[in-house]
Design a binder for these strands. Sequence first.
DNA 1: GTGAAAGCGCTAACAC
DNA 2: GTGTTAGCGCTTTCAC
Lengths: 343, 343
Amino acid sequence: MTIADVARAAAVSTATVSNVINDVPRMSQETRQRVLQVMDDLGYRPDPTARNLRAGRTDVVGLLVPELDRPYFGQLATAIADGVEARGRRLVLQRSGTGAKEVEAAAFARLRMYDAVIISVVGLDAAELERLNFTTPVVLVGERPVSRGFDHVMMDNVAGARLAVDHLLAGGARRVALLGGGPGDDPRGMVAQRYRGWRQAHEVRGVTADPRLVMTVDALDLEGGRQAVHELTRVGVPFDGVFAVTDVVAFGALRGLAELGLRVPDDVQVVGFDDILESRYCVPSLTTVDAGRDAIAAAVLDLLDVRMRQERKSAAGTPGDDRMAPREIVVPATLVHRESTRG
Amino acid sequence: MTIADVARAAAVSTATVSNVINDVPRMSQETRQRVLQVMDDLGYRPDPTARNLRAGRTDVVGLLVPELDRPYFGQLATAIADGVEARGRRLVLQRSGTGAKEVEAAAFARLRMYDAVIISVVGLDAAELERLNFTTPVVLVGERPVSRGFDHVMMDNVAGARLAVDHLLAGGARRVALLGGGPGDDPRGMVAQRYRGWRQAHEVRGVTADPRLVMTVDALDLEGGRQAVHELTRVGVPFDGVFAVTDVVAFGALRGLAELGLRVPDDVQVVGFDDILESRYCVPSLTTVDAGRDAIAAAVLDLLDVRMRQERKSAAGTPGDDRMAPREIVVPATLVHRESTRG
DNA sequence: GTGAAAGCGCTAACAC
DNA sequence: GTGTTAGCGCTTTCAC
């Protein structure tokens, strides 16, 4: 079932069928109707692989996220999908994982399968990214600066973490555990940046930060957060505040604290990071840092618009190097005060 | 940068380059190395749109889910992605939404963009699905029977809901609110099926089910669950049990109950449905129905294997109608007892 | 073991 | 307003 079958059945040329498919204006209503009728009768649908090859575009934007089951990314993807669809394109989500798999996933996305690619970077570094030699617009979104060569929308991890920890200290906490990781992590990674915020907040307030309060959580998931507070108690490090590097870890910590019979916020105050939807609804509701998810989505979409417009122009033969230099946008973080803290 | 550029630089034909790309065995090591070297130097990557068109496959499996930010689907997608990747393919996730958008998304997926499509059906009916005339294997996964013409992996909604409500009744609850919807809903939809389970459990136990306990929740989200219990209290319908049609709605209900000063499970027992990861970690942890997410993923992958093998065979010219009749697999549901219920 | 050449199904000039 | 035609970049016989 190809365009040729339709053309034959409708007694027109393939070009006419193509014109109908693509809503080219100058056509007789009569022919258009006839062709549409035939397409419907035959159940014809254009083959996108052929269209993609010929037209050089797919009308699909790819979004690479480390995992498909993290609430933050699901919610970010939803915001981005809304924008992409409003612009007449489609968003598809692809899991990138970490390490070698991340490079592989990016390499796949680099191919012309997508008109543009949004990558939520985890471990990819500048060299790897540049080596991929993307032919389509790329927007990086994430926690850390990666490469000067790409548009990048970042959250302000250090400032956000500082906000969170300062809020705990202001609320009277003096021993704030950090659930995530410490100086040993990749210094440009998300965990290390939030650790820096934790340290800075202590410095500003003149409170000594006990390094034993830094708990490494391997998988940043619910169980990790739960384990971490148990471990803290087991080794006997006293604490009256918890800053979890993500809301999900904070949920696990809330669970662990309940198991230990510790009350929130009376015995221990807790702050998370991300402001995922669930944070407003858990009991007690979670004080957290809104890293500007919606602003991030909006910035990504803007960048995409600009780059894709440029793409079209240069494809159309306007060579003039009006190429905008790669932009780096840092979205500010704000504190959302809820029940898990005093302050 | 095409295969021709590589061929020229390596002083071989395009066919040879293609052979190298596709790991065709009979080739001199020398040529292979040279071509690989040139590809690397030039940073060449094959264009998948061309390859797809010519080869008639994409090595990509599409998964259509109603929303990207629902924990259940994120977790299901993760399980399926693991299996798909283990088989050397890639999974991409696409949001289908509901209503007209769902048909549109399915129509897009029907195109040869994917080698196979998994659809988590919401409102699509048999006629719409058949009209799309899929050319690739399709596996339906979801709540309700749709069309005899497709492979379908279903959860046992009615039995699962019965299990949940029976557990509440066994635990002494006599006025079990249903958060989701009632007889007014599409009778084959998920909500209506879980409503049937609610009714059946009452019948079995000989308990009268007060229709005023059925609360319609428009969006099955956190806020919906929260509102529902507030509404129940506002209109003064007494209740001592809550069966929420999804865990997410149950979380909202837990929140609402806390706001109302009602203790769980002492004043009100709560059961959810789906057994998403979060259910084990909330406070109190949520008794829920495990609808067999992992078993569903496994069944989907099996079906996919069979169908894709058939596809290859028939493409290879083995016509004999060894086509397996569409299968309908119902995965059993089990109750997971946690802190939100006595019983 | 390597090369020449014929398309895969569609779009976009351009001719009429 | 419609038709003719030349590819998009790749895979795949089939010669040699």
